[in-house]
Amino acid sequence: MSDFSQRFMFDDSDVRGELVSLGESYAHVLAKHPYPEPVAQLLGELLAAAALLVGTMKFDGLLILQARSSGAVPLLMVECSSNREIRGIARYHEEQVTADAGLRELMPEGVLTLIVDPTKGQRYQGIVGLDGINLSECLSDYFATSEQLPTRFWLNADGRRARGLLLQQLPAERITDAEERAASWQHVTVLADTLSAEEQLGLDNQTLLHRLYHEENLRLFDPQPLQFKCSCSRDRSANALVSLGEPDAEALLVESGGTIVIDCQFCNERYAFDAADVAQLFAGGGVKSPSDTRH
């Protein structure tokens, strides 16, 4: 299994962790667009971050990470569902992307928005500036300032694999003394800071955790699979047309030469609607007899 998240717990302290490994799903995302290496790495890190966050949440719905900037990469967007289905996309200006560019060079004046969109209940949104040297630092800073549980991230990607490590301090239970609690948190995070990119990308989870925490009592839980899956569909595209209203949809049909084509930017799927399809939609007939879908 190349795509999975895996939780672990420290038995003697109030800290839990999550590990994420993405291979096949990362390859699916990169196969849809010819991303330059620095952009592919940044997108891989954001994919890993989304998968880590979903692993810490109990909800039904969608987690969205959306980063915008005024620079070479104006948009990064990743979605991961509570069913652990993930997709992502980047927008970039190729002439502005240099070979060794990092987050600050690629996304100056950047802002990251974290959105939790539950199937039932109220939507939550948090915003953090992309002021750190990398995405790991930015996300860690977000949790440090948002009055949520202290959380640290370690993210790496190389165009073939995307890996992530998350540590989160839980409410006081095993250690209730404030100084001891702070020392315990510092201990596990300082050890995680010694992890190199090569180790994170190359080691399996058991070896990685032994490398960091062989002196700790630690439980590693069963892995949970992740997969690339796009949430686009012909029905969704049809609903978008219906939301335009019949006059605007018919005008768009004329402008498009008799066929409206809606492209999914995430997976390059194409949904075509001719005059008969549009008439059927507004007559309440749905998309039961659609035109061919083209890839």
Rank of each mutant, 00 (worst) to 15 (best):
L43K: 04
S82D: 08
F273D: 00
S237Q: 12
D193F: 01
E199M: 06
Q200V: 04
R294T: 15
Q148T: 12
S5T: 10
V128I: 13
M57A: 10
Y213C: 11
L43C: 09
V15E: 02
D100T: 14
A101H: 09
A183G: 04
L195R: 00
P150A: 13
T259M: 11
A276T: 12
V287W: 08
S81K: 06
I64C: 09
A178W: 08
I175T: 06
L170P: 07
D100S: 15
A182N: 12
G285H: 07
I86H: 02
I86Q: 00
T293K: 11
E179Q: 14
R87T: 11
Q6D: 03
L191R: 15
S243L: 13
E37R: 13
T151I: 09
S184Y: 02
I64W: 00
V128S: 10
A51S: 15
L22K: 02
S70R: 14
Y124W: 13
V242A: 02
S81M: 00
D235N: 05
Y124M: 12
L253A: 01
R104Q: 15
G23F: 05
A279F: 03
R123L: 15
V20S: 02
D193S: 14
Y271G: 01
L149Q: 15
P36A: 09
D204R: 01
E95T: 12
V39A: 07
R174K: 15
A67D: 05
Q148F: 01
R174A: 09
R211V: 05
I260C: 01
